[in-house]
Nucleic acid binder design. Sequence first.
RNA 1: GCGCCUGUAGCUCAGGGGAUAGAGCAACGGUUUCCUAAACCGUAGGUCGCAGGUUCGAAUCCUGCCAGGCGUACCA
Length: 688
Amino acid sequence: MGSAHRIARRPPRCPRIAGPFSLSHRCVGTAGGMNILAELQERFRAALAELVDDPTELLAMVRKSSEPKFGDYQANFAMALGKRLKRPPRDVAAEIVQRLQIDDLCEPPEVAGPGFINLRLKTDWLAAAATRTLASQRLGVTPAKEPRTYVVDYSSPNVAKPMHVGHIRSSVIGDSLKRTLRFLGHKVIADNHIGDWGTQFGMIIYGYKHFLDEAAYRQNAVAELGRLYKFVSRLVSYREAVRSLPEMRNRLAERRDDAAHLASVAQERSDDKGAAKAARKAEAGAKEQAAALQSLEAGIAEVESDPVLSKAAAAHPDIEKQVLEETAKLHRGDAENVSLWKEFLPACLEDIQRIYRRLDVSFDVTLGESFYNDRLPGVVNALVQRDIARESDGAMCVFLDDHKTPLVIRKQDGAFLYGTTDLATVQYRMETWHPDAMLYVVDHRQSLHFEQFFAAARLWGYDDVEMVHVSFGTVLGEDGRPFKTRSGDTVGLEGLLDEAVRRAYEVVSENDDKKPGGAEIEPERRREIAEVVGIGALKYADLSVNRTSDYTFSYDRMLALNGNTATYMQYAYARVFGSFAKGDIDVQELRASGAAIDLSHPAERALAVGLLQFFEALEAAAAEYRPNLLTTYLFDVAGAFSIFFDQCPVLKAETEELRTSRLLLCDLTARTLKQGLDLLGIKVVDKM
RNA sequence: GCGCCUGUAGCUCAGGGGAUAGAGCAACGGUUUCCUAAACCGUAGGUCGCAGGUUCGAAUCCUGCCAGGCGUACCA
């Protein structure tokens, strides 16, 4: 534990506070923009007005059709409404269709099955809408009419140690949410709440004072600090392990006794399912305990068999206390430790910045724990004064309804905790930016903490801001345990990036070599492409899955370059450029031509429908803070493009008009893919 | 013990009241004188953990059970 600062933060399935893009906020009409779904909903709103008081809830049942044969969109509310009005659903559907003014957009609606209303967009209308979108820099996405202010809190590594795979998800998801919300016209403050003030710095300081290799430090300060951190942390773990050993052994003995006892009970009462279950459980508990003990002993043996470590361990028997003392001195303002901290911090920050540059992840502010240090006593005082916090067992606590355990904001020894800092952070953000919402992109293991801290913040008076724990599952190793390599080290982020790029380089080269006209990409350019493809694949792997469930780390999955991956979209984009280059097309000229898109082929039509759904895909992704809704959309668009490109000759189209129309469709596809990938933080290349 | 989350194709995962449950990978078969075959098309593969319930309609909501993960006041 404590291996990361906040490696882990998804929105509640049913947010109590409506998301920013709930129906009532959706823009009305499509003036200048193109949100087909929103437009259809408005048409239905008018048609429903005389049947129900508030159609908003029903309008959520207008959606994309489940199958192409049911048209492009469908409305599913007639069945529910029929029930409510005590009328046959098909009659209700027929009446709504009667009232619905939609003939400018759609073919005559069809009532199907029990009362589904199926809508098929007019191909002429689609063509005109796609043509209009060509002229839109923002691809038909209009900025929010009521912009909100968001603070997005993501990545948040502990800067005293190298970043590892556990940090990717928060960084990548948070950065995508920032980009998407901002593109939709909201004000977004991206904040990297780094861990720069905790025990890890106590370890580095202690290590610096006792184990420093000065030459190494002069040569590469960050590497040496990393080594010191790891070294001290192993000694501390060793001490803790040794100390807990007797207890662990006792507990194992107890568990084994329990298991043996319950097993005999279960045997006596062979028809008692509860007893059998209890026995199984106890057996599992004993095994778990044995495994824990074994791993503890293995860790101890490892240190003791290493001459350097064992010698250091013997020489520093009270290292745990000493490390805590160094941390406490830092917090008290001890001149030497503060000066060391100031010396270490820039190097640590520069080190993580290198990774962010490569990942193309950025922040507007980096306000770590240390930034809030001065506010912490004030936070506690304010909460005490308002009777929100009270003392319990010597600690200052906020007791909450619905929670057995309180949120502790000051320890017995007077030290503050991360909950205190989190509250101070809320206070600062509210004073500084007055946000409408704060998003915490952190893994689900911290959900209890966020429930408690949000509740405490509301008690404190911050109850008109939406606070959302955008949580996600933990990255686990292939053995089901957190991200470790075979040798037991955590998988460093940098190594992972290198591996991703290395694999991408192989694939890029392989594919370039087998091009019909021979290889066309220089090695240096291949390397640049590999960087874009490799990093894109890595990010896409994290963005394309949803779920709070943990997922299993796998190089093959994260670095896959086939199927539903960023590579597929990048490839579609590159193909457009390839054909433009081959046809010697001047894109600026093409765009300026004022020519119109025509959709005579089914594959053209399907592609156009997809392209016109960009806006609604973005709104869906933003409303639920789920980038995977955007990846799914882009995969659909790229798929529609691949089919189109397969079936519809572009450069060799039958007529000049058709050729131009298809070139425009290609251009719009490329722009949509590029923009969409950009909102995921993924780049494109013209050739691959 | 209590709380939260998860269980969908061989694997990794979408879908989270709506019509015949999808994708990628893996398997098998097909498509290239033609804009990048990193593609496209097809075949095969599922009692959506189990059992009840609510509903016109349940993979989806509710209850119970089974299995797994995580968390459970002074780490972050």
